[in-house]
Design a protein around this nucleic acid. Structure first.
Length: 398
DNA sequence: ACTCCACAGGAATTGAGGGGTG
DNA sequence: CACCCCTCAATTCCTGTGGAGT
């Protein structure tokens, strides 16, 4: 198609500012989170008087504005602290714990964000104590008030010693020069309970719960974003309402609602249509769902993928919900046919419960007493088509 | 009320693989 | 180089559990 005309085709656009619909966009104003902002403000307010902040634990499902609200709050906090003579220097250490599965890794990440490029430390090799000591050195050098934000804190499994270290470093005399506050952000409601008692008490001094958005709230958020990002006559109100309704029906996630709208607008743009319509939104929803499923499966280990493949086969053959025992023999066939050894039943149970956690499938506990005992029934929790098409397309790559 | 099935899922361990220090 | 620290997927061993059967 190199005929001398621009490969970008028609450059007319329905977008005023497409960045507003990108997932990493930080809005200047937050809608529908007033109550949470108030609670947040009262927990952080002591900082402005030079006092130590409370530790804050934020929880709520994905896409409920936890991260956006946190960024909003710390921006204001730094702004006001600079303007206020009474307050000390405020340093924010913003860590996303995604991919940081252990206390050790989190400590390494904290040290590395505070150090310059030359003095970075590797993700393994040293002892935990060494890394903690380096971390305290960095804190002491900074002084003032240090706020450690740990986003997706639930990704740290088992060992919560980093949280203990951070929560208690003042009382253990490790921090001589400054005050430290922790903001923990979690999607997972059960994470709080899985913490050891001593960590729970100190980390959760203030708790703020972010409820899922309802359809009406999502619509107001979307209307606001649409006004900023799209030209007035480039979308139907019903398309906005439909995007909001889809997202509300699923998880009540604002991110998802905005994703759907952006994809719909991209579709309209690519087709050369001058308006985002309901049909674009419907197609976009399919596309977003498919992408989400692909991302989830992509992130799994090879064995995790066989488990997904097996549950999809069970679903296709109308065998779901399927009992763990029956699933296990099906899984073994799948793994073997893919040329792999099969895992023990115990490991497959672990994979199943992990897939339940991330939302690819759902498991229901049953119990039929003496004859049938206690067991679980599993079935797919996402569209079968998107899972099957994932495996068909990776099949072709080989 | 008590037993007992057939699993669920916690705990400890292993072995290969990332990296460190002297 | 020898020896140490941390990680990750998986294994083995084991205790917990809720209701049908007695």
């Amino acid at each position: 198609m190199s005929d001398g005309t621009s490969p970008f085709g028609n450059t007319a656009t329905i977008y005023k500012d497409r960045d507003v619909l990108r997932p990493d966009y930080q809005p200047e104003e937050l809608i529908e989170r007033d109550e949470e902002i108030n609670k947040y403000a009262s927990a952080l307010e002591p900082v402005l008087h030079g006092w130590a902040p409370d530790n804050i634990f934020i929880y709520g499902k994905a896409g409920t504005g936890k991260t956006a609200t946190t960024n909003y709050m710390i921006n204001w906090l730094q702004h006001d602290a600079e303007a206020n003579e009474e307050s000390e220097d405020v340093t924010i250490v913003n860590i996303n714990c995604d991919g940081l599965t252990s206390s050790y890794r989190v400590a390494v990440e904290i040290v590395n964000t505070l150090r310059d490029d030359k003095a970075q430390i590797p993700p393994a090799g040293h002892s935990k104590t060494t890394v903690y000591n380096w971390m305290y050195e960095e804190f002491n050098e900074l002084g003032g008030i240090i706020l450690v934000v740990l986003d997706e804190i639930d990704h740290i499994d088992n060992d919560d010693s980093i949280l203990y270290q951070l929560a208690r470093c003042e009382s253990m005399g490790k921090l001589e020069n400054g005050r430290l506050g922790i903001i923990g952000i979690s999607n997972d409601f059960s994470f709080r309970d899985s913490l050891s008692a001593k960590v729970k008490d100190s980390l959760c001094e203030k708790e703020i719960m972010f409820p899922s958005y309802e359809s009406g709230e999502l619509r107001r958020i979307l209307v606001d974003r649409a006004e900023e990002s799209l030209y007035d006559d480039a979308y139907d109100q019903s398309a906005i309402a439909l995007s909001a309704a889809f997202a509300a029906q699923d998880k009540g996630s604002a991110r998802q609602a905005i994703d759907i709208l952006r994809n719909a607008a991209d579709l309209a743009n690519a087709n050369g249509d001058d308006k985002v319509s309901d049909d674009h939104v419907r197609d976009a929803k399919e596309h977003v769902e498919r992408g989400r499923v692909e991302d989830m499966i992509d992130s799994l280990s090879p064995q995790g993928k066989y488990v997904v493949q097996a549950i999809a086969i069970a679903e296709r053959d109308n065998q779901t919900p399927i009992r763990t025992k029956n699933f296990y023999s099906l899984y073994k066939k799948v793994a073997n046919s893919e040329g792999s050894e099969s895992l023990s039943g115990r490991s497959v149970r672990d994979h199943l419960s992990e897939l339940d956690m991330i939302g690819l499938l759902t498991s229901e506990r049953k119990n039929e007493g003496l004859s049938n005992g206690a067991y679980k029934m599993h079935e797919l929790d996402v569209s079968l088509d998107s899972v099957l098409s994932y495996f068909e397309s990776t099949e072709n790559e080989r």
